[in-house]
Design a protein around this nucleic acid. Sequence first.
DNA 1: TCTAAAGCCTATCAAATTACTAAGGATTTT
DNA 2: AAAATCCTTAGTAATTTGATAGGCTTTAGA
Lengths: 139, 139
Amino acid sequence: MKISTKGRYGLTIMIELAKKHGEGPISLKAIAQANELSEHYLEQLIAPLRNAGLVKSIRGAYGGYILADLPSKITSGDVIRVLEGPISPVEGIEDEEPAKRELWIRIRDAIKDVLDNTTLEDLASHSDDGDSDAYMFYI
Amino acid sequence: MKISTKGRYGLTIMIELAKKHGEGPISLKAIAQANELSEHYLEQLIAPLRNAGLVKSIRGAYGGYILADLPSKITSGDVIRVLEGPISPVEGIEDEEPAKRELWIRIRDAIKDVLDNTTLEDLASHSDDGDSDAYMFYI
DNA sequence: TCTAAAGCCTATCAAATTACTAAGGATTTT
DNA sequence: AAAATCCTTAGTAATTTGATAGGCTTTAGA
């Protein structure tokens, strides 16, 4: 029941691009270094994001990537769907018996609600809060 | 971002036990046959449920399993936590940078809210609804 | 025009996880 | 004693994950 590094690193890329939106293309190398990630691996993640039309690429020296739209217009759900597939706690909800189907639908809709209502602008804005609150991490 | 067969089949077992609560022990064989699942595989799933104190076992002929508590007192969250681990969309939420940490916490809390407020009684009760509504299955 | 910086593409691979299967032992009831 | 059932350990094929390797193409700027 986890989001893999695909979705997590994909969001990392998109948040970096959102932070520097309007400043011209950002290279993957810069993003990889800033986040201590493998540039090659990020290349594999941004390919589907480009195919899905969420980012645009500029080739050649001083090239890189830019968001295809305003940070306020791209949601975390857009990114997660591209990299992790449809948002659903199980595959084939429709084939489940009614009891469990109902449960999966409730979970799916709850996740969907969060992901589709959180934009890159939201995420990029409070990227340097301190440790805001005493959260319980294991529940 | 999926709940595996562990959690799914585990819930299947628990819902069956909830449906027949008060009717004496139910054998895994009966549950396996009713749901067309491997009895051996279910044995591996019910072991942690027993260790966690969610079910009690009665050995020997005409033995089986019973819920350790009322169906209204056991939630889907109890079952999923035992079989899938802590409810969280990523591991190590605390190590994430604030932007993503906030997102994961929102998702986690949304899932937690559903799972902890859905009891086996809820699930067992509408196990034979028709196809109640026109749901959208891929979102 | 050359060169370095960058994107683009394909293949390969080790580790982990998932979803079982196999085999048999232990316990209790009829 | 026989049958039913729980209990435990081990193995394994398929899939996914998280990379690594290497080379090709495009472009800005010296």
